[in-house]
Amino acid sequence: MNISDELSKLHKANAGYLAVKSKSECLESTRVQIQKSILDHLENRKHRFVWLRGSPGTGKTAISMSVASALNKQGRLAASFFWDKNRQGEGLASIEHFPSTLARQLALFNAEYEGLLVSQLRQSPAL
Rank of each mutant, 00 (worst) to 15 (best):
P56T: 08
R45A: 14
H41P: 09
H41V: 09
I34M: 01
G59T: 11
M65H: 08
K46M: 03
L7T: 06
K60P: 06
R122P: 08
L71D: 00
L42N: 13
W83I: 02
E28G: 03
A93N: 15
F98V: 14
G54Q: 08
V32A: 00
R31K: 01
A111K: 08
R31L: 09
G89C: 06
G16L: 13
W51G: 03
L10C: 02
Q105S: 12
A78E: 09
S8P: 08
K12F: 14
I38F: 07
G54L: 09
H47T: 08
S55Y: 01
S69T: 15
R48Y: 13
G89H: 08
L39F: 07
S94T: 14
S24K: 03
P99E: 10
S66M: 05
L10N: 12
L92G: 09
K46N: 09
S64E: 00
V32S: 02
L77A: 08
S8Y: 01
V32Q: 12
S100A: 11
A103T: 02
S8A: 01
S124L: 11
K21C: 02
S69Q: 15
L27Q: 12
S100H: 13
A78Y: 05
C26A: 00
T30G: 05
D40R: 11
E114P: 05
A111M: 06
A107C: 06
R48Q: 15
L102M: 10
K12M: 15
L106C: 13
E43S: 07
